[in-house]
């Protein structure tokens, strides 16, 4: 099943006098359960591509389909709702809500989705167990290490039971131990729950773990390797 499909995707920025083709005609299909890394040098269009796939930005041309839904046809409110229900985000700088505890951060989206309290509590416990931080339930983000915070943000992304998780350079701010732990966690979730992961990275360690490597340069796919 295709989770993501992009068709002739272009994103052109006209902010400078010379138009920048950040994404330059990308056709990409990602199937359920993939563990895909989008790689390439800085400025090659990794983040722009992830933003387009995540519905955070709209393409200049082309289409993005998520489970058959055309993201470009959705109005902004519907798009936000769509993101909430279908896409999990993991950001480079963790981006947890600092005033909420670990538990509250994880259940935040579920509450936005209108899930019941019992369901939220149960899912939070499950996820905390999965990321190996059940004892940090009532800690605030600033009481956790970077690696722990990123694991919580993976749990938050998973909480809404999305179709896939987009992770934009998730290990960029982590040391090697935390990077390994995070990758192991993502791999485990990918294998056990069949969760689809797409991450952008230029971290060798991440690339080694990926099962598909999509290399970009100048906004184009230059190599697509299944490992």
């Amino acid at each position: 099943m295709n989770v993501i499909e992009t068709k002739d995707l272009y994103k052109i920025y006209n902010s400078t006098q010379v138009p920048v083709h950040a994404v330059n005609g990308i056709n990409l299909i990602i199937k359920k359960g993939e563990f895909t890394a989008i790689v390439g040098p800085s400025g090659c269009g990794k983040t722009t591509l992830l933003n387009l796939i995540g519905g955070l930005d709209s393409p200049t041309e082309g289409k993005v389909f998520v489970s058959g839904n055309d993201l470009c046809s959705l109005k902004s409110t519907r798009l936000i709702d769509f993101r909430m229900h279908n896409i999990g985000f993991v950001f480079q700088s963790f981006n947890l809500i600092p005033v909420l505890t670990v538990k509250e951060n994880i259940e935040f989206i579920m509450q936005l989705q209108g899930r019941s309290r019992t369901e939220c509590n149960q899912r939070v416990d499950e996820l905390l167990e999965a990321i190996g931080l059940p004892d940090k339930k009532n800690h605030r983000p600033n009481q956790l290490s970077g690696g722990q915070q990123q694991r919580v943000s993976v749990a938050r992304a998973l909480a809404s039971k999305p179709q896939f998780i987009l992770a934009d350079e998730p290990t960029a701010n982590l040391d090697s131990k935390a990077t390994n732990e995070l990758l192991e966690l993502m791999e485990k979730l990918n294998q056990e729950e069949e969760m689809t992961f797409i991450f952008s990275t230029h971290d060798e360690r991440v690339m080694k773990k990926a099962r598909r490597l999509v290399s970009l340069d100048d906004g184009k796919i230059i190599k697509d390797l299944s490992l």
Partner: peptide, 11 residues
Amino acid sequence: MLMAIGMNKKR
């Protein structure tokens, strides 16, 4: 981040 993960304008 809040808007990205699904906080709509109303919220």
